[in-house]
Structure formats: C-alpha cells, structure tokens
Design a protein around this nucleic acid. Structure first.
Length: 487
RNA sequence: GGCGCGUUCGUCUAGCGGCCUAGGACGCCACCCUUUCAAGGUGGAGAUCACGGGUUCGAAUCCCGUACGCGCUACCA
C-alpha cells in the first residue's frame, strides 16, 4: 500500500450537522491538504433506525460553505466507492465470513432478554468483567448453520482474546493500553444483517486505504476492538488520532438548547466562512503562543495533528464574534460587498424595503466596515437609506448648548454649503463643514450632531462625512430642509 | 463498579526540567485618539499551573496517589 495520506470524514446521517462533527471534518481536511493527500467523505448509515432524510445534503452544504472540498464522497464518487455504508454490505459480509472461517468470530443466538438479564446480574455482582459471557462461543459452525436454516436469527460476534493487553498508539495521546479480558465478544453483524460501527469502519478504512483515522475521543475506548479486528483480518491498522470535544459554556456536550449548534445557523447569524474555519480550528489546535488569525491557506500550511490539544474546549460565541469582526475588517471592500449583498439576498433585513444590490453594498462599506462583528450588524446601521422621510423626534435636532434659532442657522448654512459644494465627496464635505462650525461659533460636535439627526435620524450613526457622501447631495439637502421645517 | 482519557486566568490557549515572580487572545475596566458609535493604541484587574506526595541543585513541565470531569462498559454511532 502506498503511503499516501488519505483521511476520511465519516458522519452518520442522524440529524443536523453539529459543530463538533464539523470541527472534526475541518481537522481531517486540513490534515489532508497539508500533506497533499486525499479527503474523503463516507456516510455511516448502518443504523437504519436513526437515519434522517436530508441529513447528508445538509452536511455537504455545511462543508461547502466553509470552503472544504473533497476528493471522494457520496456525491462525487471515486475509486473506492460506494461511499454509503448501506451500499457496502457485501464487504462486511465477506469480512465476517473470513473471521468466521478463521475461528475469530462465531454466531450467537442469545436473545436480547437474556443479554439484558446478564447485564443486570453483572451489575449486581459488581464484577469488573462486563458484557457478553461467551455462551454461544463454543457453538460449532455446523450447528449454527442448521439453526439458521431452521429460521433462527442471531448475530455474529468477534472473539476477543481473553488474555494479554492490546496496546495502541494515538498521535495525540501517545501509547494507550487495554486489558483484553475486560473487552467482551462484541457484535460485528447485527441480526438485520447490517454491520456494527466497529466492523464497518475497520473494513471500510482498510478497503479505502485510509492512512490516518481521526475521530472523536469517545472512540478511544473502542480502539482495542478495532485493533484486534485488524489483527484477525491480517490487515495493517492505520494511524489513529482521537480528537477532543467541543463543549458548551456549562461544560456539557454542545446541544440544541445551548443555541446555535449547526454551521448553517452561524451562516444565518452573519458569520464569514473564513472566520468560522479559523475559530473552529483554534478550538483545539494552536500554532504557537500568539498567532490566531489565519486564512484557510495559512491553516493548511501550519496544521498538524501533533499540536491538537488533549482536552475538550468550550465554544465561546464572544470570541467567535470578535474573530468574525477581524475577518470582516481584513476583507477587501470588493469581497465584503459580495458577502453582504448575497447575505442580504438570502436573509432579508427588516431595515430594507428590498434586498439592496451589490452597488449599494459597495457604497456603504466605508460606513460599516469597522463597525461590524457579523453581517447582520450592517443593516441596523443604515435604515435611513430607505426612509422617504427620516424618522426622529424634532427636539433631538437641538444639540446640547444650542437653541432653536441657533440650530436653524446652523442647518441653513450647512444646507447652502452642501448645495453648491463640488466635488461632493467626504474630504470636501469635511473641509467645508469644519470651518463652517468655526465661522458660526458652534462646536464641531454641535454642527455634526444636528446634521446627524437630520440626515440619519440616529444619535449613533456611521461617520457623518462619509454618510453624507453616500446619501448624495439631493437626499442630504432634502433631509436638512425637512429638518428646518420641523424645528 | 471496572476500564480509558483529561485537568494552566471566566473562556480559548503558550509552556515539552532552569528563559515562568507563568506568555498571548477573547471578555471586563481605565486612559488615549475622536463628529456619535465602532475600529485602533496604551495600561490594568484576572491562574497559589486540580490536590497531595515523591524524583531533582531546580517541576506547570518527570513518577506515584487522590479528587473532579468526560467517555466506554448496546444487535447506537
């Protein structure tokens, strides 16, 4: 087997793509791309009962949004397909036959009732050995076949060694060792003919020539099973890396009740895919003691499994918000305009009559660029662009330390100045207005404050010179005249 | 119960025996900048490195134990 790096992301289609799963996918992808290897998606749908329609599509859409691409998978196919485990049953049966023939597996006809009775008994006894007791272990294959022929159904179990220890290696955790006597003869083929995760993943990882298996930490306890399976099948095991979990603030597993848990929800919240990728990667991985803003190219360049942390991490939306703001500020006006207009198109903002186009986005970016943490933050900063008549209480026009007449004078002067100003851009607006305040003997803040209310209706608005330019001469003067009328 | 994994500021983390009276970041506070708000800049509060024993001239770093958390102990993944 070539030592090409091939990693797989193997979600089971049981619901919405969870942040934790996605983070695993990100690590897989980064590792594959860093090593110039293959990134493969395989759907683990061996549990027919828990299957959810549409889950696969949602999963793929999430990955695509984040900018991950895959070389083989359910939608694109590949040389090692099919990529749905439910379509690979022949391979698992073949492996089971091999195991049966080699005496490494046996048929078991114990009823679920006996099994649960057994469990109960073991619990009562406080025995350290739990799990299946090996009752059917000595059944001969001939006997088993005749029971099957007579209509009995059962499962196939793997014969774990009773003695010694299984020692494995994990890239993140180092050497791990397990006593064999504590692991029971686990089921590899269920009575419905489907394989369990243990068999299916081992068979597929081998057949698909997966070089590195990365998966959540909860699988670490199953490592001895998998290692013994590889051994019995006479296959070389891949390298393993068990990843830490993503937790909620209360240190429990991130769940629906904690708020947003799927990437698509974060897209709706106005997160940039690059920020999401950056943040999720840093949740469990670090380069050094200071670098934390990475582009996806930089992540690929630096990522390594060795630097993944051993302990679970709490998902902190505050830090994500900050990081998203950084990515927004790092975006070019062009890229941001694309992001904003398509965001507004997909998730219409209440402030706008209809989704603004890209030109509008480009025009207002100077006003909002440094003021956003998420894409949702832009629209509330800009409602005045879509109001026929700017909305505000007229007494707000009168700034602190000013009176009605003074305000009128100031507004009139500004209106006149703006009517003839040429060119009508931020610099000349500023160069006209500042001296004007001085001439009128009012504070700059008083003049601009009055103009701010008149043109935007907001006490807190984007910078006023830029705003006036974006609004344009006509609308600005109209709003100021309207303000004078309302005084 | 047994087994496995984990444990550094509230949070994400750096640290792989002396550079640590523990560094960075988010958040928080203050100040500066300033047309409001942001952004930016500067500074501050915040961790007896879970606890207890060792080893060593020297330990956040190595070893042992304890506690706590999580996982496995399914014909779920």
């Amino acid at each position: 087997m070539a030592d090409r790096v091939r990693v797989r992301f193997a979600p089971s289609p049981t619901g919405e793509p969870h942040i934790g799963n996605i983070r695993s996918a990100i690590f897989d992808w980064l590792f594959a791309r860093h090593n110039g290897g293959d990134f493969i998606i395989r759907i683990e749908d061996t549990d027919q009962a828990r299957k959810v329609d549409g889950a696969v599509e949602l999963m793929l859409e999430s990955l695509k949004w984040l900018g991950l691409d895959w070389d083989e998978g359910p939608d694109v196919g590949g040389d090692y397909g099919p990529y749905y485990q439910s379509e690979r049953l022949v391979h698992y049966r073949e492996a089971a036959r091999t195991l049966l023939a080699g005496g490494n597996a046996y048929h078991c006809f114990c009823s679920p009732e006996r099994l649960s009775e057994l469990r109960k008994q073991q619990q009562q006894d406080g025995s350290d050995v739990t799990g299946y007791d090996g009752k059917c272990s000595s059944l001969s294959e001939g006997e088993a076949q005749s029971r099957i022929a007579s209509g009995e159904t059962g499962v196939i179990r793997f014969r774990m060694p009773d003695e010694g220890a299984t020692v494995g290696h994990d890239t993140i955790h180092g050497t791990v060792s397990f006593e064999n006597r504590l692991t029971d003869d686990f089921v590899i083929i269920k009575s419905d003919g489907f394989p369990t995760y243990h068999l299916a993943s081992v068979v597929d990882d081998h057949l698909m020539e997966i070089s590195h298996v990365t998966r959540a930490i909860e699988w670490l306890s199953s490592l001895p099973r998998h290692l013994q399976l590889y051994k019995a099948l006479d296959w070389d095991p891949p390298e393993f890396a068990h990843l830490p979990l993503v937790l909620a603030t209360d240190r429990t597993k991130l769940a629906k009740r904690h708020g947003a848990t799927s990437v698509l929800e974060f897209r709706e919240m106005g997160m940039l895919p690059s920020a999401m990728l950056n943040y999720l990667t840093l949740l469990g991985w670090s380069l050094d003691d200071k670098t934390e803003i990475f582009s996806s190219e930089e992540l690929i360049e630096h990522f390594s499994l060795e630097r993944v942390s051993k302990s679970d991490a709490v998902f902190d939306i505050e830090k994500l918000n900050w990081m998203n703001g950084v990515h927004i500020r790092d975006s070019s006006p062009d890229d941001l305009a694309n992001a904003l207009s398509s965001y507004w198109n997909q998730y219409p903002a209440a402030e706008f009559l209809s989704p603004p186009d890209r030109d509008f986005a480009l025009k207002v970016i100077p006003l909002v660029h440094a003021r956003m943490k998420t894409l949702t933050d832009a629209a509330p900063l800009l409602p005045f662009f879509f109001q026929d008549k700017i909305e505000y209480d007229s007494e707000q026009l009168v700034q602190k330390g000013m009176d009605l007449d003074g305000t009128r004078v100031v507004l009139n002067a500004a209106s006149e100045g703006l009517t003839t100003l040429d060119p009508f851009d931020t610099d000349s607006i500023e160069n006209m207005l500042r001296p004007l305040a001085k001439d009128l003997d009012v504070k700059v803040g008083q003049l601009l404050g009055a103009l701010r209310i008149a043109t935007t209706g907001l006490k807190v608005s984007p910078p006023i010179f830029e705003t006036i330019e974006a609004l344009g001469r006509e609308q600005t003067v109209k709003s100021i005249q309207d303000a004078i009328d309302r005084l």
